[in-house]
Design a binder for these strands. Structure first.
Lengths: 329, 329
DNA sequence: CTGAAAGCGCTTACAG
DNA sequence: CTGAAAGCGCTTACAG
């Protein structure tokens, strides 16, 4: 039904090799033939099929982004950076969604084995040392975003540093009893941010108190949701001795926390994490992660590696920036 | 380097046909052979290559979502609905990003021609009659989300109705001078919502006044941004005779509008459109579009069509629901 | 600049 | 239940 390279070749009176060349910008085709081929191709609406090209050429001009949940502010921003770069370079983007959980590693490995593309961007995929090492064996271009492993190029933000700064800024305002609005304790971002939080406290000689680290009851998305933040803040406000200020693990949770404070009429200074676009509009103080830049840079990095496999592995770590707005006034 | 079906066949002492069968759940393989094949496949980490499979079988078990901008709240929600359904059904999702603009049609057609998958979900892709008709010729399963054309299955929300209800509710509160916070006038959602807005006004015998339809100056994303909303609201509040209430074309713009009101200290009741998750948390009245449901249902619909090409074409139109919260108090 | 031919790694009737 | 063989639609040395 749909036409193939053979149909075009026949109608244009040339060989299939020539048709192929026309569609591959390989210059060695006379203008006259090129024109004729393009003409008949256009008439029947011909275009090379991705699968056949991929198989024959063993490359796909496609980059695959592997992500846990896709509907998430962080990915949204990172993805827009990726796309900016990709459209500059003429690559196509495939997005593959894996489910975080016990089978994460298997799913990730599966994607690689299927050989969808020659380059992979892993966003917020957290594996352990031995699992990363294992992936290393496939010897394909992979760059990590929001994760760090010495065997692959990576682009991440110093989470410990970010949490440290946020907490410290609260301490400097004179608060002593500072809570951390948390999420799933075992998740990578929480673990890192907790370290920074503790470090800031101990530097000021304040004892860490586990009851001040509170999270909601919603497990969806590891608790990084408005609801998770809302629940957690309600709990805090109900404590016999509520915290004086609060560091939130993400802006989206902070949004929920803000509502909890509004609903109860109690208000304490809070500071979020991420700086999603919206934060500016609701006056939320936060720790800025350069999400778009991360996506853009990681993509550039990946493409470079695809072109030169022997490039030295590089780790790029951004410093988070503290942004103070009205929520901490 | 990486092993193929031939390697596995040789090592397992069977033919490649058998190996293929093992990986295709086709039952006609003895347990013993299956076990042996799986064993050696596992040892070398073999997995069929997507491109070769796609070419040989002429299908890919993949559904492709075609979207304009990906980093957008509406898509985010719709996508999560799509994914829920897809993971139930065992399909893989590919996301292809087209750039809205003059070449939109060409880009869309290009994707189809490349034959990435057997089924396509077009999200918020707005083409004209003749363009849709043209795509019809490819005779492949396509379902439209947030768009309507009689030749394809579609899932959409009645935008006219939604705008009508929002405006009407404002009128019923006694306001007469009601503004519409708009975006790019030529965009499909704006055109539809403007109709509903006008209809509500005329029903109450209020004359439509073009100066009350205001948008920001930011062109990015057709103006559907916080910034666009902020700018527009600033303009409204600066009018010699500011509106008494305002219907916003999207929640995200309403967020910006809210800030503009806060910054200037002037406040008028506003109502948004979409009901993004966040709206509940900032007390924004809005018109709810069942975005997740739309994604879920559209995907189900698409899969049914993929299995039965002769199914009658169906148009599903959701009724938007008005949700009143504190922003209209 | 152009063509004939081999090959990419699978699937799938067709036999047995 | 299993194998031999053709074919999917391209790309790419190799010749000329």
């Amino acid at each position: 039904m749909a036409s193939t390279i053979y149909d075009i070749a026949k109608k244009a009176g040339v060989s299939i090799a020539t048709v192929s060349r026309v569609f591959n910008q390989s210059s060695s085709v006379s203008d006259a033939t090129r024109k004729k081929v393009l003409e008949v191709a256009d008439k029947v609406g011909y275009h090379p099929q991705a699968y056949a090209q991929g198989l024959a050429s063993r490359k796909s001009n496609t980059i695959m982004a592997v992500v846990p949940v896709i509907s998430n502010y962080f990915f949204m921003e990172v993805l827009s950076g990726i796309q900016d770069k990709l459209s500059e370079m003429g690559y196509e983007l495939n997005i593959f969604n894996v489910t975080a959980g016990d089978s994460l590693f298997e799913e990730v490995e599966h994607v690689i084995k299927r050989r969808w593309s020659e380059g992979y961007l892993f966003i917020s995929i957290h594996l352990d040392e031995s699992q990363w090492r294992h992936l290393t064996k496939y010897n394909i271009p992979i760059t990590l975003i929001d994760e760090h492993y010495e065997g692959f190029d990576s682009v991440s933000v110093d989470n410990v540093q970010g949490a440290y700064r946020a907490t410290k800024s609260l301490l400097e305002k004179g608060f002593k009893r500072i809570a951390m609005l948390s999420a799933l304790r075992s998740s990578k971002p929480i673990r890192d941010r907790m370290i920074g939080y503790k470090r800031a406290l101990s530097e000021k000689g304040i004892e860490f108190c586990d009851t001040l680290v509170v999270s909601g009851d919603t497990e969806y998305r590891d608790g990084f949701t408005e609801k998770g933040g809302y629940e957690a803040m309600r709990k805090m406000l109900k404590m016999k001795e509520p915290p004086e200020a609060c560091f939130c693990a993400s802006d989206i949770q902070a949004v929920g926390a803000l509502k909890a404070m509004k609903d109860t009429g109690q208000r304490i200074p809070i500071i979020g994490y991420d700086d999603i676009e919206l934060s500016e509009y609701i006056g939320l103080s936060t720790v800025r992660q350069p999400m778009r830049d991360m996506g853009y840079f990681a993509t550039q990095n990946l493409i470079e590696r695809m072109r030169n496999k022997d490039k030295a592995v590089s780790q790029t770590i951004y410093s988070p920036e503290l942004i103070l707005r009205s929520s901490t006034d």
